[in-house]
């Protein structure tokens, strides 16, 4: 039904609704401020919002903040993109090749539910403390949800769709790239949406374990030095990256799947 316009609420009404909606968040911030003011917690346990924001500003002006953020984003995204390319192509090829399916099916069914992060020390042993090790760990962890989503997505493509394409003269290659991939893309994108936060979590853990530049390394160093402001500043900075990732992924999905009736 077109021509339906929601009545525009007044500014005051909208401000009221906004305040109600964010009341608990605001209350949490007020409580944080009060708890630090009244010294219920020591500044070590809970540094004041002001000191944390000062710390973020200082990190920003010295440039450390941007180096750390950029490195963490680079490692998470590089691993994610490699995992996406490998996962989607392997998943597509597997559905068309019985031999590959025979080999990888049990590997995936055992590998998917395993806590892959345990292999981090092994990867360090093999690849050292450099970016290669961190990115490899991200790939190893992020590839499983993408791979399983691709396989499930291709499997759920209706046979009639493939048959109609063949009937219209599509060859095997065309079927894979022009029919299977787009038809499975809603599920593949869901897999990617699961994998991206995992990539960030793993990148941060790898940095924490191996140290050096990057958000994880900076936070763990702050923690070791009992620098609680640094730790809290890190939490807020990493949350911002996480938030940007989630929003960007949702926007990508909406863009790519404009033809798909979501919900």
């Amino acid at each position: 039904m077109a021509g339906i316009s929601a009545p525009t609420p007044s500014f005051a009404a909208r401000a009221g609704q906004f305040a109600l909606r964010w009341s608990l968040v605001i209350a949490l911030f007020v409580a944080w401020e009060l708890l630090t003011r009244t010294r219920t917690f020591t500044p070590f346990m809970l540094p004041s919002p002001q000191s944390v924001s000062e710390r973020i500003m200082r990190d920003a002006s010295s440039g450390d903040l941007f180096i750390n953020m950029a490195l963490t984003i680079y490692r998470a995204l590089a691993g994610f993109i490699i995992a996406a390319m490998l996962g989607i192509s392997l998943g597509l090829v597997m559905t068309r090749n019985a031999g590959l399916r025979w080999f990888f099916d049990p590997v995936i069914s055992v590998g998917f539910p395993m806590p892959k992060i345990t292999f981090l020390p092994v990867i360090v042993l093999w690849l050292g403390f450099y970016d290669t090790a961190k990115i490899s760990m991200v790939v190893f962890d992020a590839i499983f949800p993408i791979l399983t989503a691709t396989i499930a997505g291709v499997r759920s493509v209706e046979k009639e769709l493939i048959w109609s394409a063949r009937n219209l003269g599509a060859r095997e290659r065309d079927v894979m790239w022009q029919i299977l991939l787009p038809a499975a893309s809603p599920q593949i994108l869901t897999g990617l949406q699961v994998a991206l936060p995992i990539a960030l979590i793993v990148a941060v853990v790898a940095e924490m374990m191996m140290g050096g530049y990057g958000m994880g390394g900076a936070m763990i160093e702050a923690s070791r030095k009992a620098d609680s402001r640094g730790v809290f500043a890190g939490i807020i900075e990493i949350s911002i990256i996480g938030w940007i990732f989630v929003k960007a992924m949702a926007m990508t999905r909406a863009r790519l799947l404009f033809w798909h009736a979501e919900r």
């Binding site: 608990l24 968040v25 070590f44 941060v204 702050a222 949350s239 989630v246």
Partner: peptide, 23 residues
């Protein structure tokens, strides 16, 4: 009241909590 809090904490990479809980 809760959905904005959930929205705020949902994208937080959970591993970032490790140093805080250790602290």
């Amino acid at each position: 009241a809760l959905s904005p809090v959930v929205e705020l904490f949902y994208p937080l990479p959970k591993s970032a909590l490790i140093p805080v809980t250790a602290l």
